[in-house]
Simulated scan of single mutants.
Amino acid sequence: MIKRLVDRLIFGGLLIATLQIPMLADHYLQYLSGFFDANTQQVDAYTANARRHGFDSAESMIDALLQEPNPIVRVDAEHKLEILRQHHMLEQAMETLSNGHLLDKALFMFNPVRLDELKRVLVHFKPGLPIDVESIAFCIVVALGLNLMLYLPLLLCRRLRKNNSRPAASPN
């Protein structure tokens, strides 16, 4: 009886933990949205400035600035180039967090490369429950899988003990 209670408590804890993943993904998306909007404004300003001065794109303007002999101009161009790279990465992140499957979102968020960013998101995260059926179903399946993975070694050990404790059949 106690084993069943412990099993149910562990499953309940796993389910509550996995139900936080969709909520965290939404929170992460909101966090990146503000950063993406500010970054997009900068990239748009670079593009407008490039066109105003006869360049086809912000990248071609930056390439020209990187060729300038003045080091301050080159440093500024490198900064602009980094903003463009960030913008490209943010576009991919927004796509994943907006339209990706929950597994893709989780892999994105829990990538060790983004650990510092995840920590900043978690500072303001409040636990909750998702309201879409797909997320709930996915979380139940994941919680059941994790629960099984936790208990599989115990079940195997119990079966091995049971098989070893049986008396060996006599050869007679």
Results as ranks from 00 to 15, higher is better:
P127Y: 06
R4M: 15
A93Y: 02
E117W: 03
C157E: 12
E117K: 03
G145F: 09
V121H: 05
G128I: 14
L65C: 02
L115H: 07
E82Q: 04
N99T: 08
V6Q: 13
Q86C: 05
L146H: 10
T18H: 00
G34T: 09
H101Y: 04
F55Y: 05
C139H: 00
D56M: 01
R85D: 04
I2K: 10
E68K: 12
H124N: 04
L154D: 12
N49S: 14
K105Q: 07
L65R: 11
K105L: 04
V75S: 13
L144N: 08
M1C: 10
C157F: 15
R8G: 11
A38L: 14
M61T: 06
L102I: 05
L155G: 08
A77K: 07
L9A: 14
H101D: 10
D26K: 02
L14S: 03
I16F: 05
V133A: 15
H53T: 13
R114S: 00
Y151E: 05
D56Y: 03
A17L: 07
L32W: 04
F125M: 10
L154I: 12
A38K: 11
L90E: 10
K162G: 10
D63C: 01
A64T: 05
D76Q: 13
A50E: 00
Q20D: 10
A48S: 13
F35N: 11
G128K: 06
D44E: 08
N49G: 11
R159H: 13
E134Y: 03
R166N: 04
K126P: 08
C139P: 04
Q20Y: 02
K80D: 03
T40Y: 13
H53K: 01
L122F: 09
D26S: 08
G13W: 03
A17N: 01
T18S: 00
L32M: 11
L97T: 05
Y31K: 10
K105N: 06
L115T: 10
S135N: 06
D132H: 10
E78R: 10
A106T: 05
P171F: 14
D116P: 07
I72S: 07
L5E: 12
L155C: 07
Y28I: 03
R161A: 14
Q67E: 09
R120N: 04
R4K: 13
L90S: 09
L97P: 13
L115M: 01
I83F: 09
M89N: 12
S60I: 00
V75H: 07
I2N: 14
F110V: 00
A143I: 07
P22H: 01
D56F: 00
A93H: 05
